[in-house]
Design a binder for these strands. Structure first.
Lengths: 220, 220, 220, 220
DNA sequence: CATGAATGAGCATTCATTCAT
DNA sequence: GATGAATGAATGCTCATTCAT
């Protein structure tokens, strides 16, 4: 997204550290999202960032540190986007719905960010796996809390934490997978995709096949 | 699973080709599942297999060929396990249920196999991405077909193919994610985990929070 | 030339040693002439020969030994062909002419042999360089002797051995180079090519450009 | 020529790129000329050049690219040396003579260069064969042109192109072979060797054995 | 005798990382 | 602060050669 100076030449302009760091991380996110951690090379990142490799190391440390930093930044931004999107004082279904909408909205507008976060899920070997796992775990917990909250508003024996977490994991996975599917079918709108997932997890196939559909509150 | 002889010493015993090939592929699945394609080295695979590198190449070809062969073998075994588990002439919900049970059953008993198949999802660059994507695509199509079949038994305007596929993608993602979660919570039984996902996707949260639970037919 | 059994299967028939050795060497000459020493692999040679690698080693020793043996055999055959072709009791020019004709005749009918002998001239590093150099040296000496003999029949101060050898080296090189050129222009006959070289070295450009041509004795 | 530091130790001194590149190519020519393309290893070249392997690749690309670059450089230098040596407005024989003198002069002073160019003639397989063949072809064409020019100054039916080319090929081969012979008999002077070849190809044995010798014009 | 199975040793190439200017 | 120049350490792959059956 920021392959600016195609051929860097001469000495890079002196810039305040914060700006430089941002610049580098933008480049790193770009490259990591395109190639994945292993295939990405520090050479290419430094080139895209428009600085020399020693600067890369001076500012962001090793490749792994750089990757972890990227993950952390992008994950934080995404979580904030979602948190901001959720309408807190509404009914559980509406909260979930607004969360999903925010999630797909974010993915649609930040493909690179999303891919850095998701395209590496497997490489558990690396030490940045911790970073990734933690970020994902945070998302799962958030959803789990929402689910627990939903059951508490009813007269049903509240589900165990374990159960909530497992369901949350499933939901998060469904969201990730659907987001990937969406990348290959960009003709659909974020709202439509979000709505599908909402229907699936709130109504279930059992209802869906009978024509029972979940609708956003405004239409109710 | 067979990282036995940490330091191989002397000449490996003469074995018929077929046996050695199996041995090597088992080792490869082991290493690939632990480290992922990129981080795995042919050196380590040959060591784990208890043979020298040239045998690797003589029998299974290049690293990429080896990986693709692993993927194909494991995917085939898994798909067969699931196909065998599905009860074909039953109602759609029962079919789905038996499929999920078979899936989690397989994952529980073949962790390495499962991880080879799932831990590389992101590596879009590699030439084996095709292999992986195809395998996953096949699974998604299978689920989508099941969903379409389910809607057709009802008097509802049958869902578009696109919609079915997206829901199937979500379901598959939910299954994958839940399988991963399960790997970290092995105290649960396969049936319990499968049942959770079944309830989520068939009943939906909407029902679940009201205490409506899906039960296997025998209990109905 | 002897890629007989395309797919060897089962155990090779027991054959008397001499026959086996011939078979192997024919295959080796074929492969060496096509690929050169380095690019030729013992695997391919054994395959073309229709036997297993251990047999190759049992019969002909190491790759270098095998190559040296090939060189020796082919060179001997060629030298004999030339020696046989030379008419000993004739005038020097006729002797040279018959030698050249025999040489080009041999090359035309034994391309593989010729290429094994000539296509490796450069690789002086290997220990078989000795073999090659010796063979070539023998050819040069033969020509030199012929030249010396020619001068002795005249009333001129006979050229020094050194001079004769250098001229012989030049002549041999011209022959080799012309033979290579001929491989790329097979439409010419052996006699025509031989005649060109004869004219060049016997008459010289000085005569040639004045229309003075050397003719074989029968036409004189 | 600079196999100085047999064991390089510590970090190589910082040098500007152009200098290092020259240094590397000199080393490469040295090694290639001694061992030939196949037997030469990038390890040895880097060692002789006094740098690490990555520099080789950073500056000169792959082994094949490096070799091709060497060939091109050396061939260019040699062709220029010869072109410079030829006296253009003289009679054909004088032109040939000056060309030969220049050729042997070059070989005498640049043995490594000569050997890189000549010692690989056979390796037909490699992708650099094109490079080599083209260089040699250029030389042959040049000589052929000279021969055609020579016949045109006479009243003789000008030789066919084919004939001229074959004679040129023979002459070039004679030159190459004589140059090699010379490498083993360094006690002779370049002029003497050149003169021998000149006499052979201009006067022919027929004249030589009768004591007719070609002399450079100044002595005529 | 004949062979499938096995390997040690080496080679081209790349990449994260750092030094000296 | 900023960089061009430099490298140690792997990695994928191949080949001549040899056991064990």
């Amino acid at each position: 997204m920021q392959a600016d100076q195609p051929v860097r030449t001469g000495r890079a302009k002196r810039l305040p550290r914060a700006v430089r760091e941002r610049q580098i991380m933008d480049a790193a996110v770009d490259v990591f999202s395109r190639l994945g951690f292993h295939a990405a090379s520090m050479d290419e990142i430094s080139e895209v960032a428009g600085i020399s490799k020693p600067m890369l190391y001076a500012y962001l440390g090793s490749k792994e540190e750089l990757f972890a930093t990227c993950i952390r930044r992008e994950a934080t931004v995404m979580m904030e986007a979602i948190a901001t999107g959720i309408e807190p004082d509404q009914a559980p279904d509406v909260q979930l719905w607004s969360g999903l909408r925010a999630f797909f909205g974010f993915v649609g507008e930040n493909r690179a960010s999303w891919q850095v976060l998701h395209r590496q899920a497997g490489s558990q070997g690396g030490p940045f796996a911790a970073e990734l796992a933690e970020m994902r775990g945070r998302a799962v917990s958030l959803v789990a809390a929402l689910l627990v909250h939903a059951t508490k508003t009813q007269d049903v024996p509240s589900a165990s934490e374990q159960e909530a977490e497992s369901l949350a994991a499933a939901l998060v996975g469904a969201g990730e997978s659907l987001a990937d599917w969406w990348l290959d079918h960009p003709e659909e709108s974020a709202g439509m995709v979000a709505s599908r997932l909402m229907n699936l997890v709130w109504m279930g196939f059992g209802d869906l096949v009978q024509g029972n559909i979940w609708h956003p509150p405004s239409r109710r």
